[in-house]
């Protein structure tokens, strides 16, 4: 799994290669492959239904691919020795049962990851939910639910963050918070992979860009490489995905 002397294999590299996913007769992913590296924010962009969520769900071991591999530090998610400290995931919604309090939700996740329960109040503070910890998740606003999901992902202070449409449903202040926060994570040497269909919101946040359309990667590289001769990322994106 980890070759001795190969420090890079321990730092949170995401390597996705040749993913094929079919649902019924429909092929959702047709050989998706790309890499996300530590110290960089990688934007995984594509229109709705392009296969972003499916790719991330396979990466996180939630769905199975018919072919291909999705590895973190060279191993599939389910084989990670310490998943909560390695990867934090933010998927749609809060990821919490509505009748539990935010704090109770974080406490069971902390127990599952063998983390000290003191982390719970730390992450609540970090995402600005310190006052809402004793409130039931059902009473949270959409934005608060998203913040709770982020708090859950940060419990183990993981080297990799995977976020599916993290700014969906956030108010401008929330969007600013997430952007700044993700930049800081990357600056601290962590890997950040986020998907989005909102191009304009992302250009200032990402270092690398992977564009997916109809289950195929149509472009990947640094922000400058993918933007190319186009005026901005948004224009490049529409040129890439239009047919």
């Amino acid at each position: 799994m980890c070759r001795p002397g190969d420090a890079g294999s321990l730092s949170g590299v995401i390597t996705i290669d040749g993913l094929v996913k079919r649902r019924g007769a429909k092929e959702i992913l047709s050989g998706v492959g790309f890499e996300a590296r530590p110290g960089r924010v990688t934007g995984f962009l594509g229109p709705n239904g392009a296969g972003k969520s499916s790719t991330l769900r396979i990466l996180l071991g939630l769905d199975r691919a018919q072919a291909g591999t999705a590895l973190i530090d060279g191993v599939p998610f389910a084989a990670l020795p310490d998943p909560v400290r390695t990867v934090g995931a933010v998927l749609d919604g809060s990821g919490a049962h509505r009748s539990r309090t935010g704090r109770a939700h974080l406490r069971w996740v902390a127990r599952a990851g063998g983390l000290p329960l003191s982390r719970v109040d730390e992450v609540l503070e970090l995402v600005g939910l310190a006052d809402a910890g004793a409130k039931r998740v059902g009473g949270y606003s959409l934005g608060m639910g998203r913040r709770l999901a982020l708090a859950t992902a940060l419990l183990g202070d993981p080297s990799v963050l995977v976020l599916d449409e993290p700014i969906n449903g956030l108010d401008p202040e929330g969007i600013r918070f997430v952007r700044t926060f993700l930049r800081e994570r990357a600056r601290a040497g962590r890997t950040v992979l986020l998907s989005s269909h909102l191009m304009g919101e992302l250009a200032e946040t990402v270092d690398d860009v992977v564009v997916i359309d109809h289950g195929r990667i149509v472009a990947q590289g640094s922000l400058a490489e993918v933007t190319g001769a186009h005026r901005n990322l948004e224009e490049a994106f529409f040129a890439l995905v239009s047919r």
């Binding site: 996180l60 939630l62 998610f77 995931a89 809060s94 990821g95 990851g113």
Partner: peptide
């Protein structure tokens, strides 16, 4: 079945992936 409320199953399986 409470796992399937609010998408909690995804939190469960990312925290405890060995099903």
């Amino acid at each position: 079945c409470s796992e399937y409320t609010g998408g909690q199953i995804r939190t469960t399986l990312t925290a405890m992936p060995r099903r």
